[in-house]
């Protein structure tokens, strides 16, 4: 197995968690109810903890002495490997929940598959974090169903969020060359299998939520190769400015 492919994959896992964690953390102090505020802060915290594990592995594989902090705070947008879905703006609360739901529905089967990886460092992180992802998915699916199958206004907002975000989900579900190679080596699961599990979870939940995915939507991708939407630059500007302005600053 090539270390470069594994490093690339660890960056993708870590950057997905980091960017989504940074996005979700922006609700801290602003969520529509106290319980939701606490939930958002906890989900963000879990994701940033998970990002730290993956990015530490990526840094170790790279072997140039970069730790998780260096990778998080000192890379530019083109070096980030997260999917486009997680960098999309928070929008209203419905949009934030829909983004979380589409991501969690992928994250859980992916981590469960990775827990059986032949690469033991990958398996260890996946086994540790899969339970946390499952806890997130229980909540995001529950809220998507309640708000979709809720009042007229909440249903309208959830459908708008689904129309907006659906095209970004495909990137998580299709393997590129790196992932196909790692799957062939037994390091990561086959993404076609993950896509089936994703669909088996998402379809009935959306049906219960009375929401309809857009037909013939294009797949918007590129994040895994470092080609991001405009949105990522704003996330990084906010997340990285302190370390950029005051290099090496600590608490």
């Amino acid at each position: 197995m090539s270390d470069a492919a594994l490093e690339e994959f660890a960056l993708r896992m870590g950057d997905n968690c980091l960017i989504l964690g940074q996005r979700v953390s922006a609700w801290c102090g602003y969520a529509p109810a106290l319980e939701e505020d606490i939930a958002m802060a906890n989900v963000a915290l879990d994701l940033i903890g998970q990002a730290k594990l993956w990015l530490a592995l990526a840094g170790a594989l790279e072997g140039k002495g970069r730790d998780a902090d260096a990778l998080a705070f000192l890379r530019d947008a083109r070096a980030f490997r997260n999917c486009l879905l997680v960098e999309q703006p928070n929008g209203d609360y419905g949009q934030t929940l829909m983004r979380q739901f589409l991501f969690d529905a992928w994250h859980v089967p992916m981590l469960e598959g990775l827990a059986a990886s032949r690469e033991e460092r990958v398996a260890a992180i996946a086994a540790k974090t899969a339970k946390e992802a499952a806890y997130h998915r229980d909540r995001s699916a529950d809220l998507v169903i309640r708000l979709g199958d809720g009042g007229e206004e909440s249903r309208r907002r959830m459908q708008t969020a689904l129309d907006l975000l659906w095209p970004f989900a495909g990137e998580l579900l299709a393997a590129d060359e790196t992932e196909a190679r790692l799957a062939g080596e037994g390091v990561i699961p086959d993404l076609a299998d993950i896509a089936k599990k994703w669909t088996a979870f998402v379809e009935p939940a959306l049906e219960e939520a009375t929401l309809v995915p857009p037909k013939d939507a294009p797949v918007r991708k590129g994040g895994k190769q470092g080609l991001h939407t405009e949105a990522l630059g704003y996330v990084l500007a906010e997340m990285q400015w302190l370390q950029r302005a005051y290099p090496g600053a600590t608490w």
């Binding site: 319980e35 939701e36 606490i38 939930a39 802060a41 906890n42 989900v43 915290l45 879990d46 806890y135 229980d138 909540r139």
Partner: peptide, 13 residues
């Protein structure tokens, strides 16, 4: 249950 999350990661409300 009031919330699946609480004041620390290990607790629910």
């Amino acid at each position: 249950e009031i919330s699946r999350f609480g004041s620390t990661p290990c607790k629910a409300s």
